[in-house]
Design a protein around this nucleic acid. Structure first.
Length: 187
DNA sequence: AGAGCGATGGCCT
DNA sequence: GGCCATCGCTCTA
């Protein structure tokens, strides 16, 4: 089942936890690729680690829009990352999807990633975006388009810890992952 | 297994 | 001009 917009129009930390175990699906000409979400990070409006901390800019404007859309940004001159926008319009918050467990289209992912090992296909935010052929053209799309999020079947055991790669807000416990899942990017 | 680091480009001040 | 919500390669063990 597709997830309703009300699911995303909620407290961002709660959405980050509830996304664990849900499925991210990408349709393309080459076929469908999909994975279970196993690691997320929350980015809040009063959070110095968030792109929105200093207000709205051209880059982050999707984060201030309605919940349930994709915020895709380009980083380090090489990678894209994908977030799910949360909260009502005007509030710049989102959940970064950091890792997936590959479920469908593994051969397509292998080609896109140029890697054979299943454990190295989607265990990082830049990697999963590449495996699912997500790019700048997905920025602002609803998760009801060529990228979708489907409901989880069961509630996983969750670990909460600090986020990765930040210089600001690095002590906040806003990273969540599924306990004992081998596809998490880092413990 | 872990640390160090270069690549690379868009955005912000 | 400087800064990144990263990745993959290299070097040391």
């Amino acid at each position: 089942m597709i997830i309703s917009q009300e699911f995303f129009n909620r407290n961002t930390i709660q959405v980050a936890k509830d996304l664990l175990g849900c499925y991210l699906v990408s349709e393309s000409k080459e076929g469908r690729t999909a994975g279970k979400i196993v690691e997320t990070e929350a980015y809040l409006s009063d959070d110095p680690g968030s792109h929105t901390f200093k207000g709205k800019t051209k880059r982050n404007e999707v984060m201030f829009g309605p919940a349930g859309r994709a915020y895709v940004y380009f980083i380090y001159g090489a990678h894209h990352c994908i977030n799910v926008v949360t909260q009502k319009p005007g509030v710049g918050e989102a959940v970064l999807i950091r890792a997936l467990e590959p479920i469908e289209g593994i051969e397509i992912m292998r080609k896109r990633r140029n890697k054979d090992d299943v454990k190295d296909l989607t265990n990082g935010p830049g990697k999963l975006v590449s495996a699912l052929a997500i790019d700048k053209s997905c920025n602002g799309l609803d998760f009801n388009d060529r990228i979708k999020i489907l409901e989880r079947k069961e509630k996983p055991k969750i670990i909460a810890t600090t986020r990765i790669g930040l210089s600001q807000g690095k002590d906040l416990p806003y990273r969540f992952y599924i306990k004992d899942n081998p596809f998490v990017s880092r413990k």
